[in-house]
Design a protein around this nucleic acid. Structure first.
Lengths: 297, 297
DNA sequence: CCCGCGCATCGACAGTATCGATGAGTTCGC
DNA sequence: GCGAACTCATCGATACTGTCGATGCGCGGG
């Protein structure tokens, strides 16, 4: 493989016309350029240069190689510039996975903030529930994920998460139902029919009801929080939904009350251990800040 | 500037998936690849790799850089291949300057022979009288030239010539003129009107006539040997033409006789001193051989 | 004819590419 | 659950070479 430094010397010679000028342009000494040129000829087994008077001239082969070399150097410079742009957060494409209610709430806000802070960074969003998101991180399909986890839930392997928000859970009931004031007791709904969300949410619901001393009768399950609210509004039963889902969409025919002590953790999840690429850290920071603002409001 | 060897390590890692396999592919030890990757990250200030389990994975930045690196390596390989092809005479474009009568005789024969010997080499012909040809060699416009010189003529500076053929000179007269047998004596035409060729040929003609004891009356001058023969055929006068010009074109209405001891040297002229690029030497050799064959026939 | 300019050569030094040996962390199988 | 095997990181040693300053050589200009 041709040594690029030698090519650089040839290109500089081609540009400047003399070895000394080439050396100056590259901030080298003149013997260094001479050395590289001689080695380049020896290593390629070609005649690239010709002494003429007190100067040098490129042979046709040398001329063509210098042109090729210019392309190579340009491509290298371009690659370096791209990398620098990405490292300095002036450019880049970050692929983000987020669960539906975050995709509808946190992500749009994060996009706005990211555009403000790092105009060159672009987000590419994919909707995915936490287990899929972890799998996508492992597979390298996405660079970053917004996930959630319920208390005492183990983290999937290979990924690292930082909790950025505690998302309280709400009991959601049809509008006609009088929930009274103060904290709500799930036990009141032991004999009511229930609607529940995705697999993981259903497990958490079962745990909550178990703590309240009963086993709920599940009438319907859907991971679509809009559909779930519609079912509740139509009087099919009650449900428990996290705050973000209710913020993303609020059916006017349902009422809600916080379930004391019940919450899920909203997490920014990355693959592997730090350090992460600067762009990944930047997007993670923006997501954290958006979540924190949401928590304060 | 990014070091290409480090890029190579990154590309190999990208291709193979593990450092060890990359090392094997590049015929290096594993610590060498590790070293290059670490240095690449340090020198670019980027996070390109991530430890995962007992292996490594490329970050998005690393992935992009690996792709760019692949392009760079491909371009380098291509440049090297082109150069090798040229050096081994499998490809190449040689620019040749030749004076008109050689362009019409020697060059076509050389093209045929060249195509036979080195099918990859291509000739690019420019017509030029010897002084122009020397200037073009000096300017780098052509790589090789066919020139001619009369005896005692000094060689222009910066170029080197090898004589490949002695081209005899002929007295050319209208068909009706009886030239008799045996060597022709220019003195016979002291009172005839003369036609002559280019500047240099005219000087040689004057020298020949001077040696024969008279000064010719020049009725017409043209560097076009076809036109000169037409003028002679129409009875305007007589002329002296070299063998190649008569071989390139022979007006049926003229007769010729050798001028004893008069000849011009046909030369292959190159720029500067050897060594020359292999392709230049190859074309020069073919031109020499064609000229030698012509001399023998 | 001599001076200046440009390249080649030489010797020396520093930087580093490379390797083998070894250590640390992870995965897999028994 | 523990050991074996695998993968990468680290370390020290060595040889290579990129780089420079000094100097020699050849050519062109004053």
């Amino acid at each position: 493989m041709i040594d690029v430094r030698r090519l650089e010397a040839l290109v500089a010679l081609h540009r400047t016309g003399t070895v000394s000028a080439a050396a100056e342009q590259l901030h080298y000494g003149q013997p260094t350029i001479s050395h590289h040129l001689r080695r380049l000829e020896a290593e390629t087994g070609s005649v690239l240069l010709q002494r003429v008077g007190r100067g040098l001239r490129l042979t046709p082969d040398g001329e063509r190689l210098a042109q090729r070399g210019e392309e190579v150097l340009a491509l290298l410079a371009r690659a370096e510039a791209e990398l620098t742009a990405s490292t300095s957060l002036q450019a880049g494409q970050i692929r983000l996975a987020a669960f539906p209610s975050a995709a509808a709430t946190l992500v749009p806000a994060a996009v706005v903030l990211l555009r403000e802070r790092h105009p060159g960074l672009a987000l590419d969003l994919t909707e995915a529930e936490p287990p899929e998101a972890a799998a996508m991180l492992r597979a390298g399909t996405v660079d970053l994920a917004l996930t959630f986890a319920y208390p005492d839930q183990a983290e999937p392997g290979g990924v690292g998460s930082v909790t950025v928000h505690e998302d309280p859970l709400y009991l959601v009931a049809p509008r006609g139902l009088d929930l009274g004031d103060g904290p709500v007791d799930l036990g009141r709904f032991a004999d009511t029919r229930w609607v529940t969300g995705c697999e993981r949410c259903r497990r958490e619901l079962l745990a909550l009801c178990d703590a309240a001393g009963f086993t709920p009768e599940i009438a319907f399950a859907s991971d679509d929080y809009v559909a779930v609210q519609s079912l509740v509004a139509s009087g099919l039963g009650v449900t428990v939904l996290p705050g973000l889902a209710l913020r993303a969409h609020r059916n006017p025919d349902v009422v809600r009350r916080r379930v004391p002590g019940a919450a899920r953790r909203i997490q920014v999840t990355t693959y592997g251990a730090p350090p992460h690429p600067a762009a990944v850290d930047a997007v993670a920071a923006v997501l954290s800040e958006v979540a924190r603002r949401r928590a304060e409001s």
